[in-house]
Amino acid sequence: MSGPHRVVLHPCHPWGVRDSLAKVPGVEVISPPDLESLTESLEDPRSEILVSFIWTDECLSLGLRWIQSISSGCDSYPWETLAEAGIRLTSGRGANAPAVAEHAFALLLAMTRRVGKSVRYGDRGIWRQAMCHELTGATLGILGLGAVGEEIAWRAKAWGMEVIGTKRHPDSYEGSASEVFGPEGTVEVFRRSDAVINALPFGRGAPPQVGAEELEALGDGWFVNVGRGSTVDTEALLEALDSGELRGAGLDVTYPEPPGEDSPLWTHHKVVLTPHLGGFSPQYADRLAEIFAVNLQAFRGEGEWVNVVV
């Protein structure tokens, strides 16, 4: 096509994304304010590219050829429908990795340094000291040594932690973990760790990878989830917390999300809960624009796609 590529940005998008995309050479960013305007923008035959945080049926149009997801997770997209329509779907995998890694440690430290409990006591005017724990010399298990998992791994190693973990194809791993298992080694990772951070992505149709057996193997350790809530059996997690074995759970994601109004997760004294904000960062938009720019070259037939989902 001649002229700049017309890129339609879904109305629901994080701060800064529009400005960062507009800096990519050769694009014209259209930012409709609502779903009705989004539909009108996509009806324009020049609108071949959509950048979106979530999927809504209004997004599907005859001229659409490529969707760049703003998120690393593409759970909400109709993969089969897109494949049948010949629409490429790519994710924002890696754009939020540094922020999520830092958030994982924030949750872990909130438990090991008793920050979460101290805040709760402080809200009630109670000054209470208790023994805390160091991460130095401890073993950290990481489930999912992908982009986020590796950001966690090298930070943990810099803190003097022993790092082990899981990866779908462990033979291809090159990173900071000293020992890497396939998914079948998940229980062993829990057994050998003082703390486990879950960075597993969403798996369509897959049962929870973290359940009673894994949490029992962790014993009196700490568990953090910055991956996907559906990868953890919530009932098994609550049972492990209530039994007195698990020291604590730091959760940025839950299943369902948010938890139900009567869920014990809201008030459990061993839980540090944040509302899925691990990926929020001013730097996120620029990293996403870098991924988009690489894929734009592929869209033009001048390079290789990255983060392909469909």
Rank of each mutant, 00 (worst) to 15 (best):
S91P: 00
L62V: 13
A138F: 01
A22V: 02
P33D: 12
L64W: 11
S47N: 11
A104M: 10
A138S: 15
L107E: 07
E40Y: 04
I126H: 05
A83N: 12
V100Y: 04
R124T: 00
R46G: 13
C74H: 11
A83E: 12
Y121E: 12
R124P: 02
L64S: 12
S37P: 03
V51G: 00
V100N: 10
S76L: 10
L82Q: 15
L50G: 05
W66E: 01
H133Q: 13
M111V: 04
E84D: 08
S91E: 00
V51I: 04
R93D: 02
L50I: 01
E134T: 01
S47P: 10
A138C: 13
R88A: 13
V100F: 01
L50V: 07
C132P: 01
S31E: 07
A22G: 13
G73R: 06
S76K: 09
S37N: 13
G116Y: 03
L107R: 02
L108K: 03
Y121P: 05
I70Q: 11
S69E: 00
A130Y: 07
M131P: 12
A106H: 00
W55A: 01
T81V: 04
H133V: 06
R114G: 03
I49C: 08
S76I: 08
R114I: 07
C59W: 02
G125A: 02
T112H: 06
Q129L: 05
S61Y: 13
G137I: 05
A99E: 03
A22Q: 06
L62E: 15
G94T: 11
L50C: 09
D34I: 11
L62W: 12
G86K: 15
C74W: 04
V29M: 04
L135C: 08
V29S: 09
F53K: 00
S52F: 09
G92F: 11
G94Q: 10
I49F: 09
Q68S: 06
E48P: 01
Y77N: 00
L35V: 14
I67F: 06
K117G: 01
R65T: 11
I67N: 05
Q129G: 12
I67G: 00
E102K: 04
T112M: 03
L35I: 14
L89A: 14
A95Q: 00
S76T: 10
A101H: 05
